[in-house]
Amino acid sequence: MARPSPDRLNLLATGASVSVALILVAAKLWAFGTTGSVSVAASLADSGLDLMVSLGGLAAVRYAQRPPDDDHAFGHSSAEDLAALGQSAFILVSAGAIAAVALGRLFADTETPIANAGGGIAVMILSVALTAALVAFQTWVARETGNRVVLADRLHYLGDLVPNLGALAALAAAAQFGLYALDSVIALGAAAMLAIGALRIGVGAWNALMDRAAPTHMIRGIETLAEDWPGIDGFHDLKTRTAGSRVFVNLHVEIRGDLPLTEAHDIGAALRRAIVDRYPNADVIIHKDPVRTKKAPDNAGA
């Protein structure tokens, strides 16, 4: 049997993520309806977010396999950032609603009992098991393909294990010891985690939409490659910008002017391949300039 291609593996990983999220949303809806637990509600909101993020990841992977078109010469990756802003707003509203209900129950004169805790416990055990299995599969795929979308989704589901385990603990404490207040406390912690995650997603998406430069370590890595590359006597005007999961890189390198055009081209092409090998999410354009004693003005020809 032939080994699946990297594109196929990435689609399988994101498809599995969507499937797991759908199962968990359905199971937790039932669990919340039968238990009334706000910690289960927090976990349900998190799974709802997972479903949106997973659908976005699946769409992003499929989109990434399409070539740029006439209207989008640099591709469509900024759509990921627009979707992320909407997701972050949804998460913040959900976190606020969960926190409000949890605080109301925590400071109420009478405790709110949790019904059918056994059924809720069974659902949360299912949630932990499915999430752990998905993380293991995504870890393998990310190691095989290096896909950033799969790797980010894996990290997100790793974080989901915490509220799932918290809801499981709250249900067990209510069933065994009648500690109903613990449900609200854990729900508040889960709401805080959701809010922090939403702000991080929103800030990252906003920065990308504003053409924020690549991370410093990536810029320095590209500079190091260019500085040491055979046949290149210098470089200037290194510019980067992020868009979704892509990083666009523009670099001017200085090559001896008396070299044959084919040889000069090969030097630049080899450097470009080295940058893409190190940073697979990079889209690199290299301009080749003859060695000059002083920098050309910004509006000079390439």
Rank of each mutant, 00 (worst) to 15 (best):
L29C: 12
W30P: 01
W30G: 05
T35F: 00
G36H: 02
S37P: 02
V40G: 03
S43L: 09
D46Q: 13
D46P: 08
L49G: 06
D50P: 02
D50V: 07
L51H: 01
L51S: 01
S54V: 03
S54F: 03
L55A: 06
L58T: 09
A59I: 09
R62N: 13
Y63C: 13
A64G: 13
Q65D: 11
P68I: 07
D70R: 13
D71K: 13
F74M: 09
F74Q: 09
F74T: 09
G75C: 00
S78F: 12
E80D: 15
L82D: 10
A84R: 00
G86V: 12
S88Q: 04
I91N: 01
I91Q: 03
L92A: 07
S94I: 11
S94V: 07
A95I: 05
G96N: 06
G96D: 07
A97E: 15
A99P: 11
A100R: 14
A100K: 13
V101I: 15
A102G: 04
L103R: 15
G104N: 14
R105E: 10
R105M: 10
L106M: 14
F107W: 13
F107Q: 10
A108P: 05
D109H: 14
T110N: 14
T110K: 15
T112M: 10
T112Q: 12
A122I: 06
A122V: 06
M124P: 02
L126C: 11
S127F: 07
V128I: 14
A129P: 05
L130D: 06
L130C: 11
L134W: 05
L134F: 06
V135H: 02
V135M: 07
F137C: 06
F137Y: 08
V141D: 01
A142H: 01
